[in-house]
Design a binder for these strands. Structure first.
Lengths: 187, 187
DNA sequence: ATCCAAACGGGGTGGCACCCCGTTTCGAGC
DNA sequence: GCTCGAAACGGGGTGCCACCCCGTTTGGAT
């Protein structure tokens, strides 16, 4: 939410009401929740919702913003970990589990990655990419990641798993599988 | 389409018209295509479409049936291949690419795996599971796959990638990544 | 206190999934 | 080849939705 300065007080209050209602409704019904119902719950007209959030995508980004910031903070903590390979793996699992649990987070990230929208610096995808890059670099330096694997690859993979499972533990299992590969490893 | 016997001739003709229209429309607009439009294009009333296909899922399964059969046939061919590990990998890539290309195939498979629908023996998911199991068994026997990796794991992973990419070559790349793992391998 | 741009929201539009039920059509039995 | 009941059809209705228009209200700078 950059430039929040210029919002009039009533606009700002409605913005917050809408996000609060959206958080509750998305938790209950997933990312396909009715925007009309969210507006109704927030006590605003549907036009107001559409004015603040021109697309469903925009609203979802606001809804998941806190969660994504949490993941970014976690990435920052893990940057100092002793085992960079494990740190990266742990973080990717955490992202997948959050995406699978918070139904729609994955879809949200995914869409923001593909749509003709400039990935603004506050978008979920950009934030995660940024936070994860450090972990990947360290893992690569430690010889724990192939050099040709990019952060985009990893985020897409993790989003994919989130999208497909929407179930925490199983999402973690699949991410582990993708990290380790299916061959009987040296480990 | 088991039990097609009992369909009256006009019903059968409409069934085929609907599937044909659906194939075209899904190719154009993806799996979220309007069912009303499909019915209109097929020249039938929307009620007729809903009578033949009680859910979007049911229609999509019919739409992708041929494609899935092709993949199953490919699996059967690959069963005799010299390198079982490579055969499995090739097939998984093929499934991912088809799923990503035929927009909605992945979503179709996915939903059929999670919904409260008994995976009928003709469902996409069942057919692919069946066909792939042979390849996985051979790969495992050849020491090219960890024993704890299941066909469900692999299909979910491949569907996930299809869902997330909808782009052939990149889907293949991600599947390869998942198969090999991200660590610098012995290969 | 004034004023106007910013924000609001009721209500309209068009599209959709899904269903009801009166009408048409098939095809089995004669 | 006719009859007739069952099977299938489809126009139109319902309710929900996203999204927008535009007359009305309100904040806050002056």
């Amino acid at each position: 939410m950059p430039g929040t300065r210029s919002l009039r007080s009533d606009a700002r209050r409605n913005y917050d009401l809408i996000v609060a209602a959206a958080v509750a409704e998305v938790a209950r019904s997933g990312a396909e929740a009715s925007l009309e119902k969210i507006a109704r719950d927030a006590g605003v007209g549907s036009a107001t919702l559409h004015r603040h959030f021109p697309s469903r995508q925009a609203l979802l980004e606001a809804v998941f913003h806190d969660r994504v910031e949490g993941l970014c903070a976690q990435a920052r903590e893990l940057t100092g970990a002793a085992d960079p390979g494990r740190a990266l793996a742990d973080w990717l699992r955490a992202v997948a589990v959050h995406g699978a649990t918070a139904r729609g987070l994955a879809a949200s990230l995914l869409a923001s990655g593909r749509d003709p929208s400039p990935p603004s610096s506050s978008s979920c995808e950009f934030m995660l990419h940024d936070a994860g890059s450090m972990l990947l670099r360290r893992a690569r330096d430690a010889g724990a990641a192939r050099p040709e694997v990019s952060m985009d690859d990893l985020l897409t993979m993790v989003n994919a798993v989130s999208l497909a499972t929407e179930d925490g533990p199983y999402a973690a299992r699949l991410v582990t599988l993708a990290i380790e590969g299916i061959h009987p490893g040296p480990a």
